[in-house]
């Protein structure tokens, strides 16, 4: 019996994880169905675009500029070991557009947006606002989840594009003011080296990450427990799940796009 206990625990945890995965998958499928079928709530969608996209610009911009700047310093120091300091603009550009722009930007959006969506919807649930929506002939998935998930899927790639640009500019500032690069040469090297797919792959990643961020916020909000503690737990779970899924999806997408 004593030996069986850990095995039972593993089995129990595995079953719970599989059940949770199933619930999230069903939730995701339902969300996509609601996005594609009428009625559409344009005003809710517009509010979500502002809350998720526009208001996340400062945090994504700050993340990108410091990341680009630090990246330039690191690559300069690292490449200096074999006399290849000249590659700083190119590596900053590829590093920002393919990986750091989408991943770090999305992680910051996850912290900001998944938490606020989970808190908002969770509070709506515990104060019976979700029930009120149903009694007012409005499907909560259609009214709350679909506009937020669609808005995040469409705006996070735009945030990634802005972040890429600002990140490259961060590298440019450090490169030209601290590392002695020529301004024109730095920009020329950056743009000549970059290929469409370097940027495009990052934007596709951004769309996937945006979908996951809002989906997790809505899923945990809708399944929030009772009271302040329930909402708190939902917020924490939403941010953790969104962050882990972003990193896992990033690996899978990188594997799919770039593994030869």
């Amino acid at each position: 019996m004593i030996l069986a206990a850990p095995v039972a625990r593993i089995g129990h945890t595995t079953l719970k994880a599989v059940a949770a995965l199933g619930r999230v998958t069903i939730f995701a499928v339902q969300t996509v169905r609601h996005i594609l079928t009428p009625p559409y709530y344009a005003l809710e969608f517009w509010h979500a675009v502002i809350a998720i996209g526009w208001l996340s610009l400062p945090v994504v911009g700050m993340t990108a500029v410091f990341t680009g700047a630090a990246l330039a310093l690191q690559i300069y120091a690292g490449s200096g070991r074999f006399g290849a300091e000249a590659v700083v603009p190119q590596i900053v550009a590829i590093g920002m557009t393919r990986e750091l722009g989408p991943v770090l930007g999305s992680l910051m959006v996850a912290a900001r947006v998944a938490s606020s969506i989970a808190a908002e919807i969770g509070t709506m649930k515990v104060t019976e606002q979700i029930d009120a929506l149903v009694t007012l002939s409005t499907n909560p998935m259609k009214y709350l989840t679909a506009p937020r998930v669609l808005a995040a899927t469409l705006t996070v790639p735009v945030l990634v594009a802005v972040g890429d640009t600002i990140g490259i500019m961060g590298g440019y500032l450090v490169g030209t003011t601290r590392l002695g690069f020529n301004e024109v040469a730095y920009l020329k090297n950056t743009f000549q080296f970059l290929e469409f797919w370097d940027v495009g792959s990052g934007l596709v990643k951004g769309a996937v990450f945006g979908f996951l961020i809002a989906l997790m916020g809505c899923f945990y909000g809708m399944n929030s427990g009772r009271g302040a503690q329930g909402v708190g737990a939902a917020v924490k779970a939403a941010v953790v799940a969104a962050s882990v899924l972003i990193l896992a999806a990033n690996y899978l997408l990188t594997e799919a796009f770039f593994a030869s």
Binding site: T127, Q129, V134
Partner: peptide, 21 residues
């Protein structure tokens, strides 16, 4: 038709359940 069915109902919730936004 669920929407049509619910259109016959009105409900006053205990805490009001007004939409904050």
């Amino acid at each position: 038709d669920r929407d049509d069915f619910l259109a016959h109902f009105g409900m006053l919730f205990q805490g009001g359940a007004l939409f904050d936004s």
